[in-house]
């Protein structure tokens, strides 16, 4: 189980000659908008995946990523170098995603309609051009995504940050502002719940691989 996405631009920057996230945001705070463009380039896709896995809707996820960068642009001076930039931007994105979830709860009827259309999508994958293995991958992904979306919010957030985004427990603790022990416990419980929900799928996959 390794860190997958390398989450922080600082780590990536340290390996090469690229400026760190903290250097970029400092330059942006001093009026260098090119530094902001570099941050956007660095974080847009990881943030999209984080929010998409959290909400389950790609279009909404992209809107939230837009809003996240807009907030960073508008509130650039609120960032202080006591925390990592990645922690700061993921906290903003996570809060926006949670707000979206609350909004969805209020519009429950609309949400039910959306779920139905998602289920339809799940039942009828586009078979026109994809080979069988690709269809399986798509279906597997959809099932996994559905299982993630059905997790309680507090478990969903940590599992996405840990297993999809590849953050360390300490970083997750800073992002969601919850003690380290609680984060570890939530990650474990989320994994147990997912293996329970995806039992049939995992069994099938085991059989295929055997």
């Amino acid at each position: 189980m390794t860190k997958t996405q390398g989450s922080s631009g600082t780590e990536r920057a340290q390996q090469g000659s690229q400026p760190t996230d903290e250097e970029l945001i400092a330059r942006f705070q001093n009026g260098d908008t090119y530094a902001f463009d570099l941050l956007v380039r660095r974080y847009k896709d990881p943030l999209l995946n984080f929010i998409y896995r959290f909400l389950g809707d790609l279009v909404e996820a992209e809107d939230i990523v837009q809003e996240t960068f807009y907030r960073v642009y508008k509130n650039k001076h609120y960032y202080k170098e006591v925390a990592k930039f990645s922690t700061w931007i993921y906290t903003i994105a996570g809060n926006l995603a949670k707000t979206e979830l609350r909004r969805r709860k209020r519009r429950k009827v609309f949400s039910i309609h959306k779920e139905t259309s998602a289920e339809k999508e799940l039942e009828l994958p586009d078979l026109k051009s994809d080979p069988e293995s690709e269809v399986n991958t798509v279906v597997t992904e959809k099932l996994i995504q559905k299982a993630i979306t059905s997790l309680p919010q507090k478990f969903r957030q940590v599992i996405v940050l840990r297993d999809i985004q590849g953050f360390s427990y300490e970083e997750i603790s800073s992002i969601i502002k919850v003690p380290l022990g609680t984060v570890k416990s939530r990650v474990n419980r989320a994994r147990l719940k997912l293996q329970e929900d995806l039992d049939f799928l995992l069994e099938d996959l085991e059989n295929i691989s055997n």
Binding site: D45, L48, A61, E141, I144, D163, L194, L202
Partner: peptide, 11 residues
């Protein structure tokens, strides 16, 4: 499960 999650398609 953990491996599947880390290998999910990156959008």
């Amino acid at each position: 499960v953990s491996a599947h999650l880390s290998n999910l398609k990156k959008h």
